[in-house]
């Protein structure tokens, strides 16, 4: 139960200018080496390497006078992920505290582990785990404190490689003509002079006969769904999820084209369903297939499977 009738006042307890601590020969040696950008531990009487060095080992026995350079590669032991740093924390974005054992040492020290830039509140990244290999990030100006190591960070395991190539692509004659037709609201194709098949869109050649095609044919925007997929992965071109991408055999064409089907629940689309092209408003047309927004069902009986089975 809070009491509001008690007076309050702010207060700090801080020794002006900070304490002056002597470090002794062992820690002093460590910090001196640290200032020079090196990590050292100290040999214990039992032969191990104590890091960071102090004058005594875990059993209280004095350590030897032998300093051993360790690291810079280190291994993370246990760790704590800080999704929202507190004001005194060394970083103002998420990071981890971790026990860090340099190669060549038998004990660990607690320090800061910087895994990169994360939004405040971020969950622990998958890369954070015991056994993670890290190295110290040294401050440029060092004074001989544990903060001469700004933090530890993982070794370089990947580089970011922007790769970009720019093009000015040319559609070629056949596709330019086809898209030119689409820009006028017409769907054009070619009839092969050898096999007589009508290709929509045309390629300017027959892939079966390997001959050029030139006889232009216009087909209507109506056709039949031969087969289709119900897509549950969002796509900016589709009206909603799930959406249907279908092979539509336009009337008069001998090859189906892939298009969106909408205006009907995805679960009701059928093989053999009759559809028609839905064009965008004329003022939005360009030389692009996007002029046809998608196909929608028309009120006609389905085409029997036998009549489309050869177009699958």
């Amino acid at each position: 139960m809070p009491r509001s009738n008690s007076l309050t006042a702010d207060h700090s307890l801080a020794f002006p200018g900070g304490y002056t601590r002597s470090v002794g020969p062992v820690i002093g040696r460590f910090l001196t080496e640290l200032r020079d950008g090196r990590l050292v531990g100290v040999r214990t009487a039992a032969g191990g390497v104590l890091f960071p060095p102090v004058e005594y080992d875990a059993d209280g026995e004095p350590v030897t006078e032998e300093f051993v350079e360790v690291g810079p590669d280190c291994t993370v032991g246990t760790y704590a992920w800080v999704p929202r740093p507190r004001p005194d924390h060394p970083l103002d974005r998420p990071f981890a505290w971790a026990l860090i054992t340099p190669d060549g040492a038998d004990t660990a020290m607690l320090h800061v582990l910087d895994l990169g830039v994360f939004d405040l509140g971020a969950k622990p990244p998958k890369t954070l785990r015991a056994g993670l290999r890290v190295r110290p990030k040294w401050r440029a100006e060092r004074t001989g404190t544990i903060g001469d190591i700004e933090c530890f960070r993982p070794g370089v395991t990947a580089i970011n490689a922007p790769v970009r190539a720019d093009y000015r692509l040319s559609a070629g004659q056949a596709l330019s003509r086809f898209l030119g037709g689409i820009a006028e609201g017409r769907i054009l194709g070619h009839r092969c002079g050898v096999c007589g098949k009508v290709y929509v869109p045309m390629k300017g050649m027959c892939p079966v006969d390997g001959v050029p095609t030139t006889e232009e044919v216009e087909v209507p925007g109506t056709g039949t769904v031969t087969t289709f997929a119900v897509n549950n992965i969002p796509d900016p071109r589709a009206p909603e999820v799930p959406f249907v991408s279908a092979y539509v055999l336009l009337d008069g064409a001998d090859i189906a084209m892939v298009a969106l089907v909408a205006g009907i629940p995805a679960g009701e689309v059928r093989m053999g369903m009759r559809v028609r092209a839905v064009w965008r408003p004329r003022e939005e047309w360009g030389q692009t297939m996007a002029n046809i927004r998608w196909f929608e069902p028309v009120d006609e009986p389905d085409v029997p499977f036998d009549e489309i089975k050869d177009y699958l």
């Binding site: 000015r168 040319s170 559609a171 070629g172 004659q173 056949a174 596709l175 330019s176 390629k203 300017g204 050649m205 390997g210 001959v211 050029p212």
Partner: peptide, 16 residues
């Protein structure tokens, strides 16, 4: 420079 032919349109006549 780009002659306005696609790759396959470049190729088809020489294959023929």
């Amino acid at each position: 420079e780009d002659s306005g032919l696609s790759e396959v349109e470049l190729l088809a006549p020489v294959i023929t």
